[in-house]
């Protein structure tokens, strides 16, 4: 039996354990989300209840309609049953199927988050590479100052600022992610760049590009891949306030609106979705971190 073949049952067991863990966290995450919405002040109310034109019968009908989910345990079990049949329920604030609402908005959010991630990573890697090649203290200081300033600015302010400057939500996501990626990536690159074999490579007159590519960036690739997983989580977290503040018609804006309206069906579905994305990206990050290049 080859070493690779002997690892297969072990790998299968790991994947199974991970999947079970994935399902448990997903279900608990969804339930916690539902409970939080249920206990939030104002659950079961609707602005229409203040409409002076409505009769008492209509107001009572609206109150009945909005109190769906009052028994949260029963609601969640029923919801999971419907979820298995592909029914995500109907939004109580927008009166439309949640599946449709998410479908219409998902593209915008994925595009914004994806572009933001790509922009942030490209910029961060470019600056890290440039600093590693130049080894200029002034450049290093300037980059640190910019990154620290960006880290100090609240996410909401970054989003509003980007919008006022005419930037798309993707730009705001990039501005939020870039300093975080840069800071971690630069620390890794600096540490690796100071390793004896890299110093020896420099001394032997090897090309700086070759040193950067093979001796600095390649060894830190697993850590960067793990960071990539974490930044996906960060992008998902950032897109909600960014879309809400920029009035971008994505899932983030929908979640914001749903939270203000205590829209249980929308919020439970989005909680499950975000939990799934978080778990998947964490899993990918763990795999990347623990990867053994000799095993590939």
């Amino acid at each position: 039996m080859t070493p690779r073949a002997s690892r297969f049952p072990h790998l299968l067991a790991v994947i199974c354990r991970r999947l079970i863990w994935f399902m448990v966290v997903l279900l608990v995450g969804g339930l916690v989300g539902a409970v939080l919405v249920r206990v939030a002040p104002g659950f079961g109310t609707d602005e229409r209840m203040l409409d002076a034109r409505l009769s008492n019968a209509s107001i009572q009908a609206i109150a009945r309609e909005r109190s769906g989910g009052a028994d949260i345990g029963w609601y969640y079990v029923d919801y999971l049953g419907r979820l298995l049949r592909g029914d995500l329920g109907t939004s109580v604030s927008l009166g439309r199927p949640v599946r449709e609402l998410l479908g219409e908005r998902m593209g915008t959010s994925v595009r914004s988050a994806g572009l933001g991630l790509a922009l942030a990573w490209t910029l961060a890697l470019a600056v890290i590479g440039l600093l590693e090649l130049c080894r200029n203290p002034a450049g290093e200081t300037l980059a640190s100052v910019i990154v620290e300033v960006l880290l100090c600015i609240p996410v909401a302010l970054l989003a509003v600022g980007c919008f006022y400057l005419g930037g798309a939500p993707a730009l705001a996501v990039a501005a939020i992610l870039f300093p975080r990626i840069f800071r971690y990536g630069r620390a890794l690159a600096r540490q690796t760049g100071a390793a004896p074999h890299v110093l020896a490579a420099h001394a032997s007159g090897e090309s700086p590009w070759r040193i950067l590519g093979f001796h600095v960036m390649l060894p830190i690739f697993p850590e960067l891949a793990a960071l990539a997983g974490v930044t996906v989580n960060m992008a998902v977290g950032a897109i909600i306030p960014v879309e809400a503040l920029c009035d971008s018609p994505g899932v983030g804006a929908l979640v914001w609106q749903a939270a203000l309206a205590r829209d249980l069906p929308v919020l439970v579905n989005v909680t499950l979705l975000v939990t799934a994305v978080t778990l998947a990206s964490n899993f990918a990050a763990d795999v990347a971190r623990n990867a053994r290049w000799d095993a590939i």
């Binding site: 939030a40 002040p41 104002g42 659950f43 079961g44 109310t45 609707d46 602005e47 209840m49 203040l50 203000l260 309206a261 205590r262």
Partner: peptide
């Protein structure tokens, strides 16, 4: 100051 659902709950329920 309360967000609207919380306010409605207080004045109607």
């Amino acid at each position: 100051t309360l967000d609207f659902p919380a306010l409605i709950q207080r004045i109607t329920q």
